[in-house]
Design a protein around this nucleic acid. Structure first.
Lengths: 250, 250
DNA sequence: GGGCGTGTTGCGTCGGCTGCAACAGTCGTT
DNA sequence: AACGACTGTTGCAGCCGACGCAACACGCCC
């Protein structure tokens, strides 16, 4: 739509991968060095790019500040926070909250496990769509047509032997999840990690977020995790209720 | 430098504050609606803006993904991680790692306290420059001229009665910090929170990052916190050594 | 129906962006 | 020291892409 903006935005992913010089950027964008320079300068002035002392460019602090600010302002998060903390307190395990946007599912909050052996994750990070419990929950609620389209659009990496292999299996899994009202990921992403998740619903009954409890098998075997189901469902329900009550605070 | 890019980037902070309609954006930017529409469309296609079902715009998932990816790739972080975890293990308190870019200092990693009463913070969030221990450490190492310029450029919010009041006091504090090789924030940001920090140095001796231990007064009084100084300095030293050894991994 | 308030589209005009080519640094090399 | 090869930088002219305008499509409420 808007050429220069498109190009400028295209630079950011390059910088995210690591520092890059002017030449690198120009090459990857397929534009003249002078053009790249001007774009980088604009990004720099706006604080989105940062000029290292050695002349190379990195992503700027502004970007982090924005991401942090936006995540703070996601209203569900606020409502959910105390409940997540409670669930963590009760179970001791890592608790996540995730949202869905476009073709991605992102963690927007987490409370770390009390145990030294923890699942690795980071707020703001995209979640593996085809295996994560929270992803299944959020995608299962999409309208039929969109769900099918998305299932065929995405890829199915074989993280482990238990990963969802293809679109057909994924759609079947989503149906099951929608029906039973909760989801699991038993070693589908990392062999030793199991997750159990439940949906948070908005006032209209649509799924607006999903939470999950994760624990490595060495700390808690899958059977033990499943025993937490009532607690997980109760927490998700409580958040849904809170959230439906105080909607439209903006 | 590049008008349309400048405008497009200007939109992002607006969206970060909360969802906004097309009209709002156009007004705040001071451009015609059609222009704003085109910019928003470009942002949307790139995944930086997200169109809510109700037509309003929010920040897109791409931005979060980028921020997360970039933070992962900050090399100091990798090196520091195990040391931070160790310090947390040993003391039980919240440990932060921060970097300096432009006029901001940002947390790039943290390990949460084991105690239920914790300091509030978030990775990616800008740190209050004038009071935080990590900020003092990073800024104290700037060349004289830059340090003075920055000290007079920034603002001095009175978070508490113990906040740094003005540029003169701040510069004096920085001198002290540089000389003694560590820094504190005793209730300068929030009355009840104390921090103790030390610098991480690169191969050339310049400060490249700073770490700090934070604890609320109710858990650990200031005197107790200061007793951790040897441990904090040792950790910072260890990271410095590791980092200087394996530099230029990129 | 008429009045608004949205978001959207087509179009001409002008200006900002682009690519070029020439310049200015800074390394290594001989 | 002079050289080339490399980086990032600047001025300029031409052209295309972005801009604002005006007109259009909706939805909503009085």
């Amino acid at each position: 739509m808007s050429q220069s903006v498109e190009r400028a935005l295209g630079i950011l992913p390059l910088l995210a991968k690591g520092p890059a010089g002017l030449g690198d950027v120009a090459d990857e964008l397929g534009v003249h060095k002078s053009t790249a320079l001007r774009l980088l300068r604009t990004l720099n002035e706006a604080g989105f790019a940062y000029r290292c002392p050695d002349g190379r460019y990195r992503l700027g602090a502004r970007l982090f500040a924005l991401a942090a600010e936006a995540i703070e302002n996601l209203d569900v998060r606020e409502v959910a926070r105390p409940h997540l903390a409670g669930l963590n307190q009760a179970t001791g395990h890592t608790v996540h909250l995730a949202l869905h946007q476009d073709d991605e599912v992102v963690y927007v909050d987490k409370v770390d496990s009390r145990y030294p052996v923890r699942m690795y994750s980071r707020i703001g990070r995209p979640v593996p769509l085809t295996v994560a419990a929270v992803a299944k929950l959020l995608l299962a609620d999409l309208p039929e047509a969109e769900r099918r389209a998305l299932a065929h659009r995405i890829e199915y990496p074989r993280y482990t032997a238990r990963s969802t292999p293809d679109a057909e299996a994924f759609l079947r899994e989503l149906d099951r999840v929608r029906e039973q009202g909760w989801a699991t990921d038993l070693g589908g992403h990392e062999e030793s990690i199991n997750c159990l998740g439940a949906p948070v619903r908005g006032p209209d009954g649509r799924v607006v977020a999903a939470l999950s409890v994760s624990a490595p098998g060495v700390v808690l075997p899958a059977e033990g995790l499943l025993e937490l189901l009532p607690q997980v469902l109760r927490t998700a329900g409580a958040i849904s209720q809170d959230y439906s009550g105080v909607q439209e605070t903006a």
